[in-house]
Amino acid sequence: MSLNQIEQAQGLRVRSTQDLAGGLFMILLAVGAFVFSWDLPAGTLRQLGPGMLPKAFAVICGALGLMLALASLRYHGEQLSGWSWKGIFFALGGALLFGLTIRGFEVNGFLARVIAAGLMGAAATIILSYLSPLNNPLSLKLGHRNAATSIFALLFLIALILYPVTTISVPALGLLVSGPLLIFFSGLAADDRKPKELLIFAVAMSLGCILLFKYALSLPIPLAPWLLGI
């Protein structure tokens, strides 16, 4: 988009926030890659070391990013548009839940404490907002959102200080649980979600997947180790 449309240069100002952000993003990645490959020896021309290509690619990425960022000051292009936070939270969160629960996981130390506090805070916030005259927490309006955020922050801090968890471990739940969990949780991301329909679909779809992948194709995917031992 950037190089094709041109307008006469009348001083430099941001003409495409998308390209500018894209350029800065590339530069950020490049700098990151360069820093993290700093320790790797570049070697000689005759015997290239492991660091040669990562560094070279990082430099080129950075240079391209710089060009893109500069071009955004000269040429018109697309502007940045909004994010779908809901999609990120529910759809990717659902996948993450699946990955974490299918064979179980264990988190130790401070991270466990943070996660536990976060979960408790979130759960409490959702329950509170259901009880309170505030609207459905999944479609919080702006005013309510701030209230919910501060309630969450408060509960999070309280839980973090008072609840000394050292280990969180989730047993391997298997496809029988992780499947519906993934489908239901991620399905909440749709604007036109219908929780009842979604619940039925989650169960039916998971059963279908179990029959297809576990029985028809006999994949070694755990089904419900906590219940059936497989």
């Binding site: 039916a204 059963l207 279908g208 179990i210 029959l211 576990k214 029985y215 070694p220 089904l223 419900a224 180790p225 059936l228 031992g229 497989i230």
Partner: peptide, 27 residues
């Protein structure tokens, strides 16, 4: 069909879990 299939699958799985004694009891 789906429900029937699952019931069969569950029954099979339970049967598998019940007969095992000593090592190995699972895959």
């Amino acid at each position: 069909k789906l429900v029937l299939g699952l019931a069969a699958a569950a029954a099979l799985a339970v049967a598998g879990a019940a007969q095992a004694q000593g090592y190995p009891t699972k895959p």
